[in-house]
Structure formats: C-alpha cells, structure tokens
Design a protein around this nucleic acid. Sequence first.
RNA 1: GGCGGUGUAGCUCAGUCGGUAGAGCGGGGGUCUCAUAAGCCCUGUGUCGGCGGUUCGAGUCCGCCCACCGCCA
Length: 714
Amino acid sequence: MPRRYLTTPIYYVNDRPHIGHLYTTVVADALARFHRFLGEDVRFLTGTDEHGQKIEKVARAEGTTPQAVADRNAPTFQRLWKRFEVGNDDFIRTTEARHRRGVEALIARLDAAGDLYVASHEGWYCVGCEAFYPEKDLLDGRCPTHGTAAEWQKEENVFFRLSRYADRLLSLYEKGVDGRPFVYPETRLNEVRSFVASGLKDLSVSRTSIQWGIPFPSRPGHVVYVWLDALTNYLTALGFGSGDEGLVARYWPSGDGRGDVRAVHLVGKDILRFHAVYWPAFLMSAGVPVPSQVVSHGWWLRDQMKMSKSVGNVVRPDDLVESFGVDALRWHLLAEMAFGQDASFSDESFLARYNADLANGLGNTLSRVVRMAADAFGGKTPSERCDDNEVMRAAAKAASDWRRAFESYRLQEAADAIRALVTAIDGYLTAREPWKLVKAEGATPALHRIHHNALEGLRVAAVLLWPIAPAASAEVLRRIGCAAPEAGPREGDLEWGRIPLGAPLVPAPPLFPRADAKAYFAAHDAHKETPVTDQPKPGATPDGVAPSAPSAPSAQSANSPAGAAPAAPAAGVPAAAAAAAPPSAPSETPSTSPSAPAATSAEGGARITIEEFFRTDLRVAEVIAAEKVERSKKLMKLRVRIGEEERTLVAGIATAYSPEQLVGRKVVVVANLAPARLMGIESNGMVLAASLPGTGEPSLLAVDPSVPSGTKVK
RNA sequence: GGCGGUGUAGCUCAGUCGGUAGAGCGGGGGUCUCAUAAGCCCUGUGUCGGCGGUUCGAGUCCGCCCACCGCCA
C-alpha cells in the first residue's frame, strides 16, 4: 500500500495564527484527505516551533519563562486546527523530550560524519539586535536600526560543513526523487538551484547569544540553531532517535526506491531554502534519505502587500468564519489561489465566491433537488436508477479532472471540477423539467430516474468535496440519504449508483445561505469598535438558520454558515455577522513603499477607534542627511533625528524632492513601523506625505519648524 | 548587478507539439419557475507588455527593450 507522509512547517509560537498559517495547514489537510480517499496509508504532521530569541524576549518582558509562553500559545494552534477540521495525526512541539532526543541523535550523526567543527566568528555586533552586521551596513560605526555604537565581538560557533554537499544537492535538484522534481513548482526549483550553484558557505548551527533552545551536545553554553532544531521535527515526530523507529521505517522514504513511500513537506515560499537546501544536506550528512518533495506555495496578500503582523494588515481567520462557516473559508482558500502563486485576499472576493460557488451553486442545487425529490417520492430517494446519462458522464469527467488536479497540487482546478459537476446537474434539471413531469404524470419511473441522476450527481460532488470541505461534504451526503462514513469517503464511492434507493431524504434550511454583501459590510462598519478576537470560538454560532424550516440540529453545528447577512436589510442582521470582528487593516500606503498603490477611499467607509489610531506612533523628526538611492527613481535614503535618537529610513519621495530641499526640514514619521528592506537598505520608519491625485506625486506633511524633533503627533 | 519568473477580456487566471485566442466571476439581454431574487440560454473584433526576427503561419520559437515580482549579491 502506498504510504504518504505530509507535513506543514511547525509554526512559531510567538505568532498568533493568521490566514497564512491556515492556508498551509488546510492545503496539507486537503492533500492528506485526498490520499486517504485513495486508500493510502497517510500520516499528517503539524506542530509548533517553540525555541528562539523572540520567545525568550517575550518571556522576559512578561516576567515569565519561555516554556510558559510556549505552553500558552501552542494550544491556540491546536484549537484552531481542530476547529478547521484539520485531521493531523500528530502535533509536535519542539520543547518536547522526544524532539530534543531526536535532535541530539541527528547532531551525533552529523558529528560522526565529520561535518561539525568549531570556529570563531568576529565582527561588528549590535547588542540591541543581538546580531552581527557587515561593516558596510553600519552607519558611522553605528547600528542602522538602533543608532547605537556597534561593538567588535567574537563568537564561537559550531559549524556544519554545508559546502561539502553542494554537488550532491545539485544532483538532487537535477534528478529529483523517484522521477519527480525535488522542489515544486519549477520556478522555485530554479531559485534553489541557483542559490546552491552560486556557492555554499558552511552554516553556523549553534548560538551562544541565546539560552532558550536545545543545549548543543557537548558544547556548554551553546544552543542548537533554531532551524537545525526545527527542521528535525519531521523526523523526531516519527520517533527518530527514540529507539523505536517503527514510524520512521513506515513513513520515511528508504532512499533506494523500495516501497511506495513519499514524504512531502509543504512550505511557504519564504522558508523554501531551509527545506530544500539545509534540510537535505543535514540528512545526507546523517545518512538519512532525503524527503521526496518540497512543495512551496505563495502568499496571501492584502492590498498588494505581504501580510505582516507589524504592518497590521493581517487577515485573521475568525472574522469570516463567524459569519460563513469553516468550510466556506476552506473552500475559498483552496479555490481562489492559483497554487504556487501569490493571491490577494479580500472580503469582497470571498463574498463573491461564496455566493457564486456555494450559495448559488452547490447549496442551491442541493436544495432544489432534495425538495423536489422529497415532494415527489414521499420524503425518500428515488427507487429507480439510471446508468447511462449525461450527469453520470459529467460526474466521471469531474472525478478524473479532480484527481489529476490533486495529484499536481492544482487545488483550484479540483474546485473547478466540482463546480462543473454542479453546473451539469443544474443544466440537466433545466433540460428535463421534472417539476413539469410530476404535475403532468406523477411519480413515474422516468421521474425516479431523473431524480436519481441529479442526486447521484450531488453525491459524487459531495465525495469530491470531502478533502476541501469535509463537514459540508458529510452534510450534503446526509441530506440526500447517504450515510457519510466516519473516516470519510473512499475511491469506491465514486462508483455510479451508490445512493440507496428509497432512503429518507433530509430537507433542511440552506446549507450556504446567500450572503448580502451590502448588509455584511454595513454590519462590519457599524461594529468597527468590536475588539479583534484572536481566539476561535469553538462550536457553532446559534443564529442565522433560516426560521420556520425544519432544521437539522446536529449537522448544522459543524459548518453552519450562520445566516451570513440575510437578504432582508435593516433590521435583521444576525448577531453572528454583527459580532464578527473586522480585520484590523488600516489601508495605509507607506510612503516608503513605491510599489504600493495610492491609498484610495476603497475602504473609506471603515472607521477605526482612537485606540487603534494610537497604535501608530507619529513623531516629528528632523532630516539630518539625505541621498538618493542608487538605481531607484523614487527612493531617498534619509537620516533623521527623532528626539535623542537617529535613524535611517527610506522614503519614496525622490521624484519630488532633492536632498538639499530635505536636509534640515521637519517631517512627520511613523516611528513604530517594523523595519523593511528597500533596495538593500533597512528602513526604520515612514515619512508621511500626501499622495497627489493622478500622479501620486508625494507632498510632505508640513510641521512648524519650531516644533522640537521627537514631539508626538496626535 | 547576476540568475529566474511574470506581463493574455473589467477582475482572477487557462492556453499542451507554433495553425487566424479560452474559462470562471462581474456586466448586458432573454427565459423557465422545482430551488437560496437561485437555475438555464445568449452576449467578449481583447494592439495576447513593446519593437524586430525566424516561419506559409507566433500569445506559443529567437533577439532587444519596458514594467512588475522572486532568489542571490
């Protein structure tokens, strides 16, 4: 039996989960379900990365231990995955003993292979950053971020002979594993290849500057580099180094092509290098076979920008889920993104897709078929079957398209295949007009056959839906009189004609009630002051099921979209929709980012609270030096003084201002903006400027020259 | 700067071996009435980023250029 090992990255517990984490995990879950559907032996792993400096810092700030911080945050991920129907078999935390033992075992192998050595590194060190800087990045010997004097420091590290593995890695990229490319998609393989081809330096795999990590074996004072620690989770979760390696034998490829075992790591493109270069090199050194494939996906963007916690434009999953249900979001994530590419997330596109695919499409077709058949046959499924018809052919085509799509990670095409099948059922019904037949002739055998076909088509659609939206899949099956197996459907369920004859149908309120976009946004704007909830609320939202229809309580709880915004405006906005917290996404356009489009009033209706505004630390700053950034039309590198502090920042104002016009000038800056690299320069702040209509030409905000630098603006 | 990628209908994207461009969504028109103001039918002459080349013929191959993105430096 084919065996499949699927992993997500382990998520850093310093982060609150957002839609990026959710996407990776839902993709992995869908793939795992697809392989289970095929009857394969699947193991699906996710977990949390709990070591490192950031956790240490948070703990210090809170006066608690790093372990306590990890213990507090890890369950947030576990709860979220549970809520999102993620069927992982294991959840590994890097602070677990099983993980530490496995990391120690791997390091022992690297050492035995002669690939570890100690060397000292010296250079300019910023205590604030806890990092070394190349001399060219320093500004007058000062840290570009903190403006404090850098110190010449010496650190001793354990190094891994990464350079030794360049040829073997290149050969891995060239040949792939078992006839498939090692990295998917191809464009990412190219990146990795050129990175390795350009030369590999040995990798420092220990740290002395932090304490929160796995102690480096026989190197007191050193902890294991977080990536060596983290990557090893894929093996330690299988029991590597524990003495019981049954799962390793079962789910990790043997490396010699024996057995059909594939280990696939799903990753975001930002961590590709660690997975496609360092990780296989570690494994080669340790004499462990490399994984089968590293599959890299794109990012969800918001307003054309990468979502980032510090920018404050992170989409949190809760908001839309409160109103539309878990399965609606899973569907949207998988159907909307062209796998591997970046995609833009917006509430508008979510609602549009929700209505088109789920409300008008699947949900409506389910309603019409169940209602009609139940009315015609006394609440039961038809008792005649039909094995040669266009719905059957459409179902077969959908199944094969769907399968091909899943096998090549084109999940959006898998969703397309389901939509096409639903469309075929709708077209079939329109052509056969069973509502006329029943009036004219009653429940004839012909009428039975027509409804059999429609219901069978829906049954197949539900089976195909299972990896993408498992709860909705089960609910469709239940309503059309099919028992949904606990473990989910299997390949044999695609066989035509499996719907039981004469079984009870379950009419119920709309599975995906149509959303009224206007009402939805009105409700959100009116409740802007609602605090953002990070915690997923378990269980269902009670409201919003259409009134007066016979309801199906148990099944509603799993994935009820809770009414969305009803067609009836004004009065009846359901509590669920109203309470859903809006994404805290002030759509600002940093003047430091020349590529970002000018801010428009697209989200102009959305109000923020005074507290939200005060998260932005605006300060008066004096420009003390300015120079144009080479090879950039718009960017100007500025040195500014904010009170006592000096900083470097980059602003997209070079088209309108010369350096001479800027020096000595007082400007307003966002002082607590996360650093960003622009043309290789780290920018620490953003200068405020009006963006003139049409040209987008910047015009700096003026401030009275007498106002002292550092003054807070509010 | 080096390497790689992208640029196709209002939007999101498909376009295999070169043969006078497609889907979904949105928009417009029509229609049925079983269904969630849902469904179904009709409706796209788009400089396929630009210029040049190869070819009987290029979105599809080659060269140059422009814009954007990614990786690296």
